[in-house]
Nucleic acid binder design. Structure first.
Lengths: 148, 148
DNA sequence: TTTGAATAGTTGCATAAACAACTATTATGG
DNA sequence: CCATAATAGTTGTTTATGCAACTATTCAAA
């Protein structure tokens, strides 16, 4: 069938456009509804800093699967919003450590609650086993494309 | 545990940044290697037109999970590349039908082969059952966030 | 010790997304 | 028939991504 050749390629648009973008839009909307003027991309940086403050930009690249320019600019924007500060390492002047401001620290509980509620909305009717399968498959996909 | 509150929210960044973006980057790279100067977003529009030529912009919005401005600009760029043409409906002047040019028609086989090869690379070691689970879960996520 | 490689980060440029506000056209209810 | 709502598409603005090319600093090997 001529139409058959489409089926594998279609999976990409399903994965990308559908679920991930839909979750992102909903999470952004829930942030705005709560009066929080940060983007989900900015939040994803803060998220890792709440777990471990003072990461450098390269570590944030690795943890968020972004490249260096993306992190540079996200940090630029977070600095403008007074949510983080850059501090150059004294032992290696190539390295910038990123630290949360008090303002950002105070956002942690509220925004993580919103993120969790969003995921609860998204995951209605989906079992823990299914979620585990999805995580494992996506991890394998990432490894297939990057570990070589 | 303080760290436990992160777990649900983390799923978003896993889904989004990891697998979808990794597949997108690889597919883009494979296009370039083959000498094809189109983006995966442009390809995703052509993909639906190869299945059914002459869709209007709203139909492309629905099929690709994008909003109207995104489609307008993607079509703008495809027109610049002489890959599609807009034709205003004669029965409803609000509607633009989008038609493939001969150039675009000739890209179909090659690009779909590349997309399929990319997905084969991405899906090494993943069973059909797992793929089905992922598709079903992402469809449910999309429905949870949009059908209400 | 010095030269070249590796690492960390930045800048330029093009593409794309989200949202709000807008125009143009068609459909509908009184 | 007309006012209003709904629909299709466009434009403006901000944010983010990817890639290539760049600077600055540190490491490592001859």
């Amino acid at each position: 069938m001529a139409n058959n050749q489409f089926k594998r390629g279609e999976l990409y648009s399903v994965i990308n456009a559908m679920a991930a973008a839909a979750i992102a839009r909903r999470m952004q909307k829930n942030f705005r509804t709560a009066g929080l003027e940060i983007t989900i991309e900015q939040w994803s940086i803060l998220y890792h800093l709440w777990k471990e403050d003072g990461l450098n930009q390269q570590q944030l690249c690795d943890k968020t699967f972004r490249d260096k320019p993306s992190i540079t600019r996200l940090i630029d924007n977070l600095v403008k919003l007074s949510l983080v500060e850059r501090k150059v390492s004294q032992t290696d002047k190539r390295v910038n450590y990123i630290f949360l401001t008090e303002t950002a620290k105070n956002l942690q509980d509220q925004t993580i609650e919103i993120a969790n509620q969003t995921m609860d909305e998204a995951l209605i009717g989906i079992s823990k086993a299914e979620i585990e399968t999805v995580k494992n498959v996506l991890q394998k996909v990432y490894d297939n494309l990057n570990n070589q």
